[in-house]
Every structure is written in structure tokens, then in C-alpha cells.
């Protein structure tokens, strides 16, 4: 059986908000090390990989592997019934067909319980090799989100160029073109505003901005984001969690 407790329901709410626009139904695999999910979006442009280590829960128990086949939008609907600071517990018996969620407000002596039906989901998995990327950029998650939002007013696509001078985002559409360039920098007072670039060779890739904007909904999970790119390969975009990560593999645009 699985029993996993979080001190604040907001932790799971934010994670679900970060993935729900891309995923419909998917399996969450639970074992003694934690919860994991790997799922492709409908168009197979983005792969979401979520890892929630058992250390990230205030209490965690999972004696044997459990697969939770969930509709992510149904999960989001139920989570809306929890207050952000409620204590949240996830429970599922072995071979059960439901996930039980309880939301507790210890001050008000309120306990709500919801049972979510589980599904048998036949899911595709992709084998993602360990990759040394040509360029790695660590920057503020909020700044990335803002930059992409600004450029989406111009075009459906953004081009990202990384070289030793910095990282440049640019877009071109009917009304004109725009770009934002960030130089590498160290901000001693606000470390999350630093921009760190590790490079073995310059890279330039283009991406669809609608998908990118869905990915940056994970910005509420982490102050920084790690962007990794290699020419002609999907980018890896990672938001670190206290124990785990939400990672996106994002297929670039390719010349016909």
C-alpha cells in the first residue's frame, strides 16, 4: 500500500498545475524511493518527467510497487477542494481501484476525504539516454517565463541562441521582431537572479512558444530553471524540487 503525507497541499497543487495542460491520463509509479511519472503530451512534442522522492514527504510508506493510473485533470479538480496549507495524505491499498486523498486543517478540526477512481492506462515510454548537453544555462525561472511571454506577442516561435557571450531569445512575426539578451552574471544578494552558462559549443534552436509557456507554469515550483540544449536534439528543462524534480524534454522545430 501507499501512504504519503505532505504538510501543505499547495506543494502537490503546484506540481499538478505545472503538468496538467500537457497531460491527460497517465500512470504515477510509486515505490519505496518515492513517486515517479513519465508521460508524453498528446502531440508528442513534450515529455514530462516528474520525480518526488520519499524525503520530500513528511511521512512516506510504500511497501511494494503501486501504479496509480490517473486523469490529471480529475486530480486537479479534487485538489481544488484543499486549502493550500491543509495537510494532505495520499493513500492507496494494494491492487485497489481508487486513490484516497484527505485534506486536514488541524486548527479547525476539519478533515475532508475524496476517493479518486484509478484507471488502467496503457502508456508509451521513451528511453531517454544520459546526455552531455552542449550548453547548460541556469537562470531565474520567473525571468524565463516573463521573457517568453513577451515574445509570444510577436510570434508562435522563439529562437534561443547560447554562446559564451550569453543567452539570446528572439522572435519574428507580422508586426516586427524582438529579442532579449542576457549576459552571464553573478548576483551575490539574490542568487536566483544569477545567470550561469556552461558551454562546450554554441547552440541555436527554435521552439513553439505555446508549449514553452505551458512548461514555464512550473515556475512556481522553483526560483531557478536549468535549460540544457544540444543542436538538433530535444532540450531538457528542469525545475528542481526539495527532493526531486519536474523535467521536460522539448522537441525543437526542424527545417523541412
Amino acid at each position: 500500500m501507499l501512504e504519503a503525507k505532505l504538510d501543505a497541499a499547495s506543494q502537490l497543487k503546484k506540481i499538478v498545475e505545472a503538468i496538467r495542460d500537457m497531460l491527460g491520463e497517465c500512470n504515477i509509479e510509486c515505490n519505496e524511493t518515492g513517486l515517479a511519472l513519465q508521460s508524453l503530451d498528446k502531440s508528442h512534442i513534450v515529455l514530462v518527467s516528474l520525480l518526488l522522492g520519499s524525503d520530500g514527504f513528511s511521512e512516506y510508506r510504500c511497501d511494494r510497487g503501486v501504479t496509480l493510473g490517473l486523469n490529471i485533470n480529475s486530480l486537479a479538480t479534487v485538489l481544488r477542494c484543499a486549502n493550500n496549507d491543509d495537510i494532505l495524505t495520499l493513500r492507496s491499498e494494494d491492487r485497489a481501484n481508487e486513490l484516497i486523498l484527505t485534506f486536514e486543517d488541524s486548527k479547525a478540526d476539519r478533515i475532508s476525504e475524496f476517493n479518486l477512481r484509478l484507471m488502467d492506462i496503457d502508456q508509451e515510454y521513451l528511453a531517454i539516454p544520459e546526455t552531455e548537453y552542449a550548453a547548460t544555462v541556469v537562470m531565474s525561472a520567473a525571468v524565463l517565463q516573463r521573457t517568453l511571454r513577451d515574445l509570444s506577442a510577436l510570434s508562435e516561435a522563439v529562437t534561443i541562441e547560447i554562446d559564451k557571450e550569453g543567452i539570446r531569445f528572439s522572435a519574428e512575426g507580422d508586426l516586427g521582431k524582438g529579442s532579449t539578451h542576457f549576459k552571464p552574471c553573478v548576483d551575490m544578494e539574490n542568487a536566483e537572479n544569477s545567470i550561469n552558462i556552461t558551454l562546450s559549443e554554441p547552440v541555436s534552436l527554435s521552439f513553439n512558444l505555446q508549449y514553452f509557456s505551458n512548461i514555464t507554469k512550473a515556475s512556481s515550483l522553483s526560483s531557478t530553471v536549468t535549460l540544457q540544449m544540444t543542436a538538433g536534439m530535444p532540450a531538457q528543462i528542469e525545475y528542481k524540487l526539495p527532493s526531486g524534480h519536474v523535467r521536460y524534454y522539448f522537441a525543437p522545430k526542424i527545417e523541412d
Binding site: S43, E124, A127, P234, K253, I254, E255
Partner: peptide, 14 residues
């Protein structure tokens, strides 16, 4: 023209 390529093009399914 550019188009978005699905991820299977890059990674083998299993």
C-alpha cells in the same frame, strides 16, 4: 518552413 518533430524521432520507444 520549420515544423515541430515528435520526440520519437529522437528517442527509441520501448
Amino acid at each position: 518552413h520549420k515544423h515541430q518533430d515528435p520526440l520519437e524521432r529522437f528517442y527509441n520507444g520501448h
